[in-house]
């Protein structure tokens, strides 16, 4: 493994320690938290929901194509709901938030680093981790599961829309299959992963932003690195988290 990767992992571990100590030992700055919930959660709604809607619709069409060969169209609701709730909803939402929010956090903190605003915070005897990292990371960890719940719901609605209007499947029947197919474990397994995804996005984005070395070029490199690293970490961790939750449930 490259030395740079190991260094970055070490930095992430240290930053996580600082984040946890500032999160639990100091009074939360609620105003800043709310601002980040809006920025990271509310403003991501459109992109995650549009993606979920069309993913659900495409999934229903593809399922109809594949299942009709076996005269098994009735299971479209099962396939759409399980795919979305267990896998596509969490992963696609995380990838989109990783791209939109992760890049934004790194660019913002990186610019602050490059223009010495982080040093200014330290020079005024304040802690940038407490002021900047804690609210952003908390917002990532809390907002991603909420965005995923909404994305799951809208994805299934997308599937319902196609099933009803395109495939002439009764809506009540479709929703009945969805509810029959989904168990609490499916929902738990899908949503459980999103807390980890939120943490990965936030910690990678904050760490890369706070360690920008040079000016505009450094910010650009760090931002790209965040999107790539967060995407890869989400996809790799998804496999292990799926196995973990499979064992737990």
């Amino acid at each position: 493994m490259q030395q740079a990767t190991l260094t970055q992992m070490g930095q992430v571990v240290i930053l996580t320690g600082e984040w946890l100590s500032n999160l639990f030992l100091r009074k939360p700055e609620l105003r800043e938290w709310i601002k980040q919930f809006n920025h990271i959660g509310v403003q991501s709604l459109s992109i995650t929901n549009i993606t979920a809607l069309f993913t659900g619709m495409v999934l229903a069409l593809q399922a109809a194509y594949a299942l009709s060969a076996f005269n098994a169209d009735v299971f479209i609701g099962d396939l759409v709901s399980l795919s979305i709730v267990r896998e596509l909803g969490p992963v696609l939402t995380a990838l989109l938030v990783g791209g939109r929010v992760g890049a934004g956090i790194t660019a913002e903190l990186g610019t602050m680093k490059a223009t010495q605003q982080l040093d200014a915070m330290r020079a005024m005897a304040t802690n940038p981790v407490y002021k900047l990292v804690v609210p952003r990371l908390v917002a990532c960890v809390i907002c991603l599961p909420i965005l995923t719940i909404l994305a799951n719901f809208i994805g299934i609605i997308g599937g319902l829309f196609i099933a009803s209007f395109e495939l002439q499947i009764d809506g009540h029947f479709f929703m009945g299959r969805v509810l029959d197919a989904l168990s609490v474990n499916d929902v738990f397994s899908g949503l459980g992963k999103t807390f980890f995804f939120g943490y990965f996005i936030g910690i990678i984005a904050c760490n890369n932003g706070m360690r920008v070395e040079s000016g505009a070029e450094g910010v650009g490199i760090a931002t790209t690195s965040t999107v790539v690293s967060a995407s890869i970490v989400i996809l790799i961790s998804d496999f292990f988290l799926t196995k973990l939750f499979y064992m737990l449930t």
Binding site: M112, T115, Q116, Q117, D119, A120, R122, A123, A125
Partner: peptide, 18 residues
């Protein structure tokens, strides 16, 4: 921190929080 509360630093570009 106690030192930084007694010693201020004026950064080259101002470093105002934008």
């Amino acid at each position: 921190y106690p030192i930084r509360k007694r010693v201020s630093y004026l950064f080259q570009g101002g470093a105002l929080f934008d």
